[in-house]
């Protein structure tokens, strides 16, 4: 099991202002599975995703990702998990002063033993795989929304992560480019047997999933 969440509780605030967000969450995801998580706004989807991605510290229950316990973990453990996880954001979150190619290379620069030419080669390869071979040297502001999100997918996949976490990747895209982006993501993930956990409201893309889970008021409901 790549992602194994058991009895996870999480709340914001403290004292009488405590606002429980996640209640006794249990979620297990196998290697290579594509899981979509849906649910209304405020149901805690993004919070769960940030805990699994090692961005947010949980202090209760058990969250084991790739064999590492993330509950009450050190910064070092969280960084280790972040490096094995590709994160796709709701906004593309590309670095605006870097070209598409340079943005993708940012993932590869975390692997200090690659040479510059290896990084270039891999980044060009993955950008070609998302259909952007002729846009490599464009800055994000010169790309369309769909192209930006595809760069963002390429960036997440470039480091050959074991897990992809995606937070509403189609939210700011029109129907066609949203669908294209997710199709590309699915194809590349299946090729490399990468696990995907994708949070979305977008019912148009449910068909890519192996499994759909629904989160409502902090509780997982099987669909």
């Amino acid at each position: 099991m790549v992602i194994n969440v058991q009895n996870l509780n999480f709340s914001f605030g403290s004292g009488s202002l405590t606002q429980p967000v996640l209640k006794s969450i249990d979620l297990g995801i196998q290697k290579g599975e594509i899981v979509l998580m849906t649910g209304p706004s405020g149901s805690g989807k993004t919070t769960l995703l940030t805990i699994i991605g090692g961005l947010r510290q949980a202090s209760n229950g058990s969250v084991v990702i790739l064999g590492e316990q993330l509950v009450n973990s050190s910064e070092l453990t969280k960084v280790k998990i972040r490096r094995q996880t590709g994160y796709i954001f709701q906004q593309h979150n590309l670095l605006k002063s870097l070209t598409a190619l340079q943005n993708v290379c940012m993932t590869l620069e975390l692997q200090l033993d690659l040479t510059e030419s290896q990084r270039q080669y891999r980044a060009q390869h993955i950008l070609a795989a998302v259909g952007l071979e002729d846009r490599m040297h464009y800055f994000p502001e010169a790309l369309s929304g769909g192209q930006r999100q595809r760069v963002s997918i390429a960036r997440a996949l470039a480091g050959q992560p074991k897990i992809i976490l995606a937070d509403e990747p189609t939210a700011s895209l029109d129907r066609q480019s949203g669908h294209d982006a997710v199709e590309i993501l699915k194809r590349l993930a299946k090729e490399s047997n990468t696990t995907i956990l994708l949070v979305t409201h977008d019912y148009r893309i449910l068909n890519i999933a192996d499994r759909v889970v629904e989160l409502e008021d902090g509780v997982v409901k099987a669909v």
């Binding site: 910064e75 979150n93 670095l95 940012m106 975390l110």
Partner: peptide, 13 residues
């Protein structure tokens, strides 16, 4: 700071 937070989420220390 958004870009820095993005890089941190990618595993930059």
């Amino acid at each position: 700071r958004f870009e820095f937070a993005t890089l941190k989420a990618m595993g930059y220390e």
